[in-house]
Nucleic acid binder design. Structure first.
Lengths: 296, 296
DNA sequence: ACTCATTATAAATTATTTTTATAACGACTG
DNA sequence: CAGTCGTTATAAAAATAATTTATAATGAGT
């Protein structure tokens, strides 16, 4: 069976129009007709029904079933291409969320530099949620990710190397600035400046908010800790961030949270379980482990 | 790309011999040579190295990577065939582990009977571990499974409907027969008659044994609760089984376990997340839910 | 009745896969 | 060391399969 047929089918399910699919693939319309017919023969079942009355195309149960598997197969094929291409180009793409990049990567980079391995590494930045997908579809080979619960996916291997609490940061001018510790519920009336939603800070924050039964007033969302910290310093609002971002600024005060069972910022080394590591990638992994898990 | 090439490649990785692969597929040897060459061109990388000196075949890193994906793709394709075939034949295969079949199925069967749906159902028996695999590769559409931890697999959807403790069963002649409750650690010197290892009873049993730091003396393993109960009655040993199997025999006594955080026998309705349920299967699922989750 | 936007069909063409036949390679053997 | 065995590779021919071209068919809308 040709995977091209699956690709045609996959698009047909979305476009619901034979001619348009043909156009997209730069082939003629009968090509699509025969491709679908081939699949229908192969699986011994009608896959789509051409409803000429309403000029629509309905997908049969078998068709829906095949659509699911076709999409998965095509995705895996793309992943194979991606991975083998990285493999042959001796390329290692390392995914880093900005907070982790700031806090842990300098140490890792220093070690890699010493071993002359830094130039073969390409880094890709993005929120942990986005990077997890990039990792799954092969754009990234290795990643350091943050999460609030231990990462457990069949397709990914995660090795936790650190766990830090979340803290509250307020301006030195803020009434709470004299405090050292605080309960989340005391922040009911505050304005918040937070990370935008591709970061796991939100997951943790929402958990705490839900548990304390209030809907926090979020006045601004940013992609950058410096922007957030500057806003906090100006007393635009308070923020909720990992202890990792502490920049020891004298215009911002860090408060610990007293709540039990708080979410933590868990840092892990992550890679695909289906991924074959090159010798170079194995070395990078070894350096990551050596540098990050050294307390163990 | 033709999936046949992936099939050839997949076998080649295992057999490491072009001619034998050709033989297995009933084609000639140059067919395999060209198929592999096609893949090597498609992925832009050598996949295998023909070592004529040692007369062996080594798989490159790219080859190993592709092998993983090829196997997964072929498996999925087979699953698609299986599922669509069940779909068109209006067949529903229900997987049942014997204990669950004995305890819960009669009620379900009665309801299905009333609705005239029993004849379209084919049941397949086996241990929970075995059935989980049968479910994954499409031999089974729906299953009732036992587990000790809530089932959480990306590929399967599990709906827990009951949770029962495990008990100890001893012969009426046994010195412990006068007891109602017992700690697992008190069984350190006992002989055990247990289920064989495709059942989750073992997982639970091993957990408890490990936690109590002793290696239990297992004198016999069987596939059938009646055999086990008969052996227990004869005082060949004691057994560890779910409360579900209680047959109210007067020659066997049931003892509850007093340990905290004991494993439980969790019963769930399980199906593939990628599976499209036919109307008939949806009805079966509704009956299962209605019958089994009725306490909720 | 005519036009439009569809999908289907059949023959011709083009592309791809497989076979046939044979070469090449290196190990082993008498 | 020539001959044979068990391999995989190569090239041309044959067989299969996919795609295009050209056209038909269908039913909705005007």
């Amino acid at each position: 069976m040709n995977t091209k047929d699956l690709a045609y089918f996959d698009r047909l399910i979305n476009l619901k129009n034979f001619s348009q699919v043909a156009l997209e693939f730069g082939v003629t319309q009968p090509t699509i007709t025969t491709a679908i017919k081939r699949l229908e023969t192969e699986f011994g079942s009608k896959l789509v029904l051409r409803d000429r009355v309403h000029n629509t195309l309905t997908v049969t149960a078998s068709g829906q079933q095949l659509a699911i598997h076709a999409a998965a197969i095509l995705e895996r094929l793309a992943l194979a291409h991606h991975e083998i291409s990285n493999l042959t180009q001796q390329r290692t793409v390392l995914g880093l969320p900005p907070i982790i990049e700031n806090h842990y990567f300098p140490r890792v980079a220093a070690h890699l530099q010493e071993l002359g391995m830094l130039e073969n590494i390409e880094t890709l930045e993005g929120g942990s949620v986005w990077l997890r997908n990039a990792l799954r579809d092969g754009q990234v080979d290795l990643a350091l990710l943050g999460s609030t619960a231990p990462l457990a996916y069949e397709t990914l291997v995660a090795e936790e190397f650190d766990r830090k609490p979340f803290n509250i940061f307020v301006s030195r001018q803020h009434p709470l600035a004299s405090r050292k510790r605080i309960y989340f519920s005391e922040l009911r009336r505050e304005k918040f400046v937070l990370f935008n939603s591709s970061f796991i800070h939100n997951t943790a924050f929402n958990q705490l908010a839900r548990r304390n039964h209030f809907r926090p007033d979020v006045v601004y969302r940013a992609r950058d800790t410096h922007i957030i910290m500057n806003l906090v310093a100006e007393n635009v609002g308070v923020t909720y961030l990992t202890a990792l971002v502490d920049q020891h600024r004298d215009d911002v005060v860090r408060l610990e949270l007293l709540d039990d069972e708080q979410p933590a910022f868990i840092s892990s080394i992550v890679y695909r379980s289906s991924h074959v590591l090159t010798p170079a990638q194995k070395q990078v992994l070894a350096v990551l482990r050596g540098t990050l898990e050294e307390k163990a």
